[in-house]
Amino acid sequence: MSAFRRSFTRRDVLQTALAGGVAAYALGRFGLSPFSVGDAQAQAIDTLKLFVPANPGGGWDQTARSMEQALKAAGMIKAAQVTNKGGAGGAVGLPEFVNQWKGQPNALMIGGMVMVGALLTNKSPVKLTQTVPIAKLTEEQEVVVVPAASPHKDMKSLVAALKADPGKVSFAGGSAGGTDHILAGLIAKSVGVDAKKVAYVAYAGGGPASAAILGNQVAAGISGWGEFAEQVKAGKMRALAVSGASRIPGVNVPTLKEQGVAVELVNWRGVFAPPGVSDKDKKAMIDLVTKMAATKEWKDILQKRDWAGSLVTGDAYAKYIAAETTRIEAVLKDLGLAS
């Protein structure tokens, strides 16, 4: 008994190398690990504050942690502090960032295409335009798949079925009003089908949606390429089309446009500075992110995670967001999800 009990004291646990590793990591994250002051990295930012309007573990959170990793490894920052505030596709976190982080230099929020839609469907009073767009970092193509046993071999055949009776072609994908649903709406609209008639079956995420497709419960599925890629490679799903401007390098799946469906959509992620930052701070952040995007560490992470780098900064990024917002608002109206 006593031997057991002894093994529970924290000291003993910490003595084992590995739990020590956990603790060291945790301490490091709070900037408690000693670092020499005034070292060679005189220009480095001490602490970069990253605001993630989603819970730990999701795509935005991973983007933030990857940025932290790349920036630290390149010596461009000394530490990063990640704050998570999840909920409603970012609509819960954004007001906090806009109000409570106002004017803070060295602070960035991660966001993306999902947020544009979520703000519209939630009728959020706070808009993305109230932030200062810094840079778009990555994008991911969407893919339209069918179960392996499906009769549809290409997009043309699926579109024909959709035109014949949209109610019969059920699409599984993520939550209503999200990227997957938006793509379904855009496809329907472009082939002359009422977007509201698309039988869209929403799932909480890629896993449950994949299960419905693998189990042949639905006619088709839409999600990010990363969610379905392995199932497609293993022959359990058939990819009919990807949604980008050109094919994904190394993936032999044609785009929607190649198959006569004039739709292009990517799920992009980027960073934003809080409102009220000075032009100097804004420029510093743009420089930081631009430099980071060129580092080997960042490129390695992109490759491992199958993210496509796509750097657009400053005013060009702001224009891009404005155009996306207009387009997404239109399709959400078509779907009956925004007014």
Binding site: P56, G57, Q62, G205, G206, G207, P208, S210, A211, L214, G226, A229, E230, Q231, K233, A234, K236, Q303, K304, R305, D306
Partner: peptide, 25 residues
């Protein structure tokens, strides 16, 4: 199958990706 069917499983799968491992069938 590489299907994350709970929140915990989803996060474990995203950890696979940090190693460049794509979990699937």
């Amino acid at each position: 199958l590489g299907l994350p069917t709970s929140a915990t499983a989803a996060i474990m799968l995203s950890a696979f990706q940090s190693y460049g491992i794509n979990p699937g069938p």
